[in-house]
């Protein structure tokens, strides 16, 4: 998520990109999800209307939830990067902690702290999986071929 890849915009502008990306993902995915769900929950003959009304009612809300989460996360990620002047998995974990905390702030400090810890752990798991995948799929350093080698012995069956 934040390993200095150069296929993304520099930091203040990437917030807009993440906001829009998360919102679009939520809205389009929510459109598909609630379209199917609304059609299944409607009586026969009303399926299309039910699907449409479910999409209209719920897809933008899901998009908004996704968008706020993603945008807030990206904002905190940029802020943490700017403060620490480092790029490592801790950035995402701290940003996740702050995001979860500020989204649950209205429910009281206790609930906010619980949500923050949950979000931080979730992001930590994501980052840990990413690091593990990186290690697993890293190209092994090829063995140097010696120029003068004995001819390969035929495989013994």
């Amino acid at each position: 998520m934040s390993h200095g890849d150069h296929s993304r915009d520099p930091c203040p502008y990437v917030i807009l990109n993440d906001f829009g990306g998360a919102f679009s993902m939520g809205a389009i995915g929510g459109g598909i999800w609630h379209g199917i769900k609304g059609a299944r929950n409607s009586p026969r003959g009303e399926r299309f209307v039910g699907s449409m009304s479910a999409i209209k009612a719920r897809a933008p809300v899901l998009g908004g939830n996704f968008g706020v989460w993603g945008g807030l996360f990206s904002t905190f990620d940029c802020a943490v990067k700017g403060y620490r002047q480092k790029e490592d998995p801790w950035n995402a974990m701290i940003a996740g902690f702050l995001t979860g905390g500020s989204l649950a702030l209205r429910a009281g400090p206790r609930s906010a702290f619980g949500s923050a810890v949950g979000c931080g752990i979730l992001l930590g798991v994501f980052e840990g999986v990413g690091v593990l995948m990186n290690r697993m799929f890293a190209q092994p350093i090829p063995q140097m071929q010696l120029p003068e080698q004995a001819p390969a012995t035929p495989a013994v069956a």
Binding site: Y13, L16, N17, F19, G20, G21, S24, G71
Partner: peptide
């Protein structure tokens, strides 16, 4: 902003509009 294709346009445009709407 330099754009890398339609997904970038979609993300940035939607993000800007959504944020200003908020």
């Amino acid at each position: 902003l330099p754009s890398r294709g339609w997904t970038d346009d979609l993300c940035v445009g939607t993000g800007t509009t959504y944020l200003s709407g908020l």
